[in-house]
Amino acid sequence: MILEAALLQVKSSMENEFEKAFEEASTIITAMNGYKSHELQRCLEVKGKYLLLVRWDTLEDHTIGFRQSSEYQRWKKLLHHFYEPFPTVEHFELFHD
């Protein structure tokens, strides 16, 4: 299993709008092949900062299956205009349990 992690900085005063849009966007990602689960965490110290964690079966399920899909275009339209700066997405695999 692969863990996708992205630190999201939402533009000032757009947090509520982002959270509503994320609820809608969640239905897109949950329907993708290889999707396992996701969570969105709100930072306590920095307003507008979120941590998105998504679990995928394989790296390719995210980088090819999702990112190259028409569904990803809908995801982008719903969410990408909220970010400043645009987030870096990294992938992790379990080293030790």
Rank of each mutant, 00 (worst) to 15 (best):
A21R: 05
T88E: 12
D97I: 10
E45Q: 09
E19F: 10
S12G: 09
S13F: 15
P85V: 11
K77D: 04
L44F: 12
K47D: 12
W56T: 05
K77Q: 08
A21G: 04
E71F: 13
G34Y: 02
A21H: 06
W56D: 03
E45K: 11
F18V: 09
A31H: 04
A25V: 13
W75T: 05
Q73I: 13
H91N: 15
S13A: 15
S12V: 15
F18I: 14
E17Q: 14
G48D: 05
A21C: 10
T27V: 13
T27M: 11
M1F: 14
I29C: 03
S69N: 04
V46E: 08
Q68T: 14
K76S: 06
E4W: 07
L7M: 15
F92C: 03
R74I: 14
E84T: 13
Q73C: 07
V10W: 02
W56G: 00
A21Q: 04
L7Y: 15
S37E: 11
S70A: 15
G48N: 04
E15R: 13
S26E: 05
F92M: 07
T30R: 12
Y35K: 00
C43N: 07
P85F: 10
Y72P: 01
T58C: 07
L52C: 02
W56R: 00
K20A: 13
S26H: 02
E39K: 08
M14E: 12
R67Y: 04
L44W: 04
E17W: 10
F95H: 11
L52S: 04
Y72I: 13
R74F: 03
T58A: 05
M14K: 07
L79W: 00
A31S: 04
R67A: 06
H81A: 14
E71H: 05
R67S: 02
T63W: 00
D61G: 00
